[in-house]
Design a protein around this nucleic acid. Structure first.
Lengths: 196, 196
DNA sequence: GTTAAGTCGTACATCCGAGTACGAGTTTCA
DNA sequence: TGAAACTCGTACTCGGATGTACGACTTAAC
């Protein structure tokens, strides 16, 4: 955020513009991680100089956009019921979050260039943890495999989601099939493998 | 290639330098899709001007590197025995090609920016076709699922390979586990799903 | 050993985006 | 309504990459 100083009383229009800018940054960077500062300012309906009035540099802006996206994501995720059969819980989690995860991809790519690597992992440790916990529970219940590294199982679910989003974007997967495809694929991956 | 003209008699040192440049481009762009022309020239042990003597611009160089990579890949792939049980064939295919596929990722990313999209798909239609044929055969034999779009099955195998390579790069997957992890994951994905 | 081909440094023209400086105009807020 | 906060255009500087021009040097090829 622009002014980390505590008692930051801002004028209402400034507040509104900041919100617009962050939102525009999130959208623009999601569509194209290399979006220009100028692109973002235009998308926010604001002059470039106004933007610089609130964010010292690109890094600050990217961080704000990423933080915002993760906050929204966290809200959505925390509303998902993860009790009951772990396989069903995974389906519910994916159905309600695949869009968010997919959108965060480009944003992450934008952050990759400007933010320190540690800061990035730090920011999205929470959502990853949620998936890990669920998988761990599924393993304890005997419905998920444990012959592959946990890191991998968590990671591959992400890759599947990103992949599906990419296929959708490229027109090789129909919009209505995405959720079903992701769920079926992820479930197959984490399920206890059948011995042929 | 630099001179598409037919009777291009080149001096031997030029020939050697071109080979070095293409090879260096392949390596440099694999490590970093945004590698500079200058980086590549240096890596090839050649002056920037020499490079420009053989490749008019970045696009031409990227295309040469990509073509070269695909040619090598095609060679390796065509040596794999794809007969017998489709599940085993898939394992063999992945074991001998995952490195190549992973390396091609960054190269593809580099091409994405400079080459027309059509040219790219055209260049790597052949390898994708090989995977598709194998999956189709597995389906005919009843060992692979057919409840998901073919495009997706082909695509997701790529995403798994790229993902594993990324995890390896990030130090979250050990080198010796990569092949096994990829094979196990891919087999789980394409296998006929068990009805719980 | 001559000659054409190829090498490659220096220097330059361009383009593009980030970030800075200035300053006049506009809006909020008390 | 007056002052501070904010907006935002113009016009820079700066750095980095691409591609071009020139020209002297070196090397392969016959």
């Amino acid at each position: 955020m622009p002014t980390p100083t505590a008692g930051a009383r801002r004028r209402s229009d400034a507040e509104r513009n900041i919100a617009r800018i962050v939102s525009a940054a999130r959208e623009a960077l999601t569509a194209n991680p290399e979006a220009t500062i100028d692109d973002i300012a235009k998308a926010a309906g604001v002059g470039r100089m106004t933007l610089y009035g609130h964010f010292r540099n690109r890094a600050e802006l990217v961080e704000a956009a990423l933080t915002e996206a993760l906050r929204v994501g966290e809200e959505t995720l925390s509303a998902v019921d993860l009790t009951g059969d772990a396989r069903d819980a995974l389906a519910r989690l994916l159905e309600s979050s695949w869009r968010l995860v997919a959108e965060s991809k480009a944003l992450l790519a934008a952050a990759e260039g400007t933010l320190p690597a540690g800061r990035i992992r730090e920011l999205h440790a929470a959502p990853a943890q949620r998936v890990e916990d669920l998988i761990r529970r599924g393993q304890a219940d005997g419905v998920f495999r444990d012959d592959l590294p946990m890191n991998w199982l968590v990671g591959v679910v992400h890759y599947v989601v990103h992949g599906a989003a990419e296929e959708l974007r490229a027109g090789r997967l129909r919009s209505k099939d995405v959720a079903r495809t992701i769920v079926a694929t992820a479930q197959s991956i984490v399920a206890v493998p059948t011995g042929r």
